[in-house]
Computed example of a mutant assay.
Amino acid sequence: MTLTDMTSPERSSGGCASSWPPLQEAGSSPYMSSLCSPSGIPAVKRYGDRFIPNRSAMDMDMTHYLLTEPRKDKENAATPSPAREAYRRLLPKKLFNNHTRILAFQNRLPEPANNFLAELRADAASIQDKPAKQRRYIPQSPERMLDAPGLVDDYCLNLLDWGSANVLSIALGNTVYLWDASSGSTSELVTVDEDDGPVTSVSWAPDGRHIAIGLDSSAVQLWDSTSNRLRRMLQGVHESRVGSLAWNNNILTAGDMDGKIVNNDMRIRNHAVQTYHGHHQEVCGLTWSGSGKRLASGGNDSLLHIWDVSMASSAQSTGRTQWLHRLDDNLAAVKGLAWCPFQSNLLASGGGVGDRCIKFWNTHIGACLNSVDTGSQVCALL
């Protein structure tokens, strides 16, 4: 029931109705006795229904009086305690700030104890105070210098290779030397005959023990570095010098001066299992992808080929050459080749003196992603 119902003409005409509210006998309820006078006129001012606040019925002066003046306890006339008096004095100050307004607006809120912005500023200041992270140190002088007399000055040859056993192989003329980086010792692996030399390429097998050697006589030799013994001789496959070699598990891939590339399975007698024809001049660089499914070859004819194992197998049966991509954006011989170890379709290639660029290729679509001019021919990439 609302206040409107209580003060409607139906209820107020003729005094207080006998049916609502149900009046009791005098003295039975102080509230009901003060609600209506004997003449039917309300004796006190009503401030509104307690369940439905009415702003127009609020009396701020009365509210302030009731909060600031001590209430007389009719039932107990004892002197109020000091705590009660202190509470009475503090209550209006905290609520009204010595004003009769209930809401008091201030220009600025007090900052909390843990100010978020202040913490951010402190963190930024501490970061600025920290010294800058040191960049990776790149030495400007070599750790060790090795004499290399008789090193053939030929861009298309591959005369250095570092094995997984931390041993460096280097071909000097007709001799292959091994330098152990752990102990610093140098040993001679083999010196080939004058008719077979000079050595035109070297490549360590994945086991770090066996090493393949390509010769000017078109032969390929497989040596055991621990016993200095010749394990196998590959002949009759190439007709010119073998200047590039690459391993794919048990498959040794060799590229010759005529542009022919042959996959040799070192586990079987008839080792030549696949042949790629695509280059018109000497093969300068060879490298297999990490998955072993694709081979990149660079030639002195400025061509870069991407070969797929499955396509090479089908080409072997049909007798036709099949490459996945033939990339002819290079302006000079392509020798330096390297596959990205964490992105299988990304390949980097380096060009000769007429190109001087490192190019990055997407081998899925055969597109050049970027080209960086180094100012000099690129001999190797890792």
Rank of each mutant, 00 (worst) to 15 (best):
S81P: 05
P82E: 07
R84H: 12
L90M: 11
L90V: 08
P92G: 14
K93F: 15
L95C: 13
F96G: 15
F96Y: 14
N97L: 15
N98G: 08
I102C: 11
I102P: 01
I102W: 06
L103G: 00
F105K: 06
L109G: 05
L109M: 12
L109Y: 06
P110D: 03
P110M: 12
E111S: 05
P112I: 14
A113W: 10
N114D: 08
A118F: 13
A118S: 07
A124E: 03
A124H: 02
A124Y: 05
A125P: 04
S126E: 02
Q128L: 10
Q128A: 02
D129W: 05
D129M: 10
A132F: 08
K133D: 09
Q134W: 05
R135L: 15
Y137N: 03
Q140W: 12
Q140M: 05
P142K: 11
E143S: 08
R144W: 15
D147H: 13
D147F: 08
D147N: 11
P149E: 09
P149L: 12
P149V: 10
V152T: 02
D153H: 02
D154R: 01
L157H: 07
G163Q: 01
G163I: 07
S164R: 11
N166C: 11
V167W: 06
V167G: 09
S169I: 06
I170S: 00
A171W: 01
L172D: 02
L172M: 07
L172V: 02
G173I: 07
G173Q: 03
N174P: 03
T175W: 04
T175P: 00
Y177G: 02
Y177S: 03
W179C: 14
W179A: 09
W179G: 04
A181L: 15
S183N: 12
G184C: 14
S185T: 13
S185I: 15
S187M: 14
L189F: 09
V192T: 03
G197R: 02
P198T: 06
P198W: 00
T200M: 10
T200F: 06
S201Q: 00
V202T: 07
S203I: 01
S203D: 01
W204S: 03
W204N: 05
G208Y: 05
H210Y: 14
A212I: 08
I213T: 06
D216W: 10
S217D: 10
A219N: 08
V220Q: 06
V220T: 05
D224P: 04
D224S: 11
S225V: 10
T226I: 12
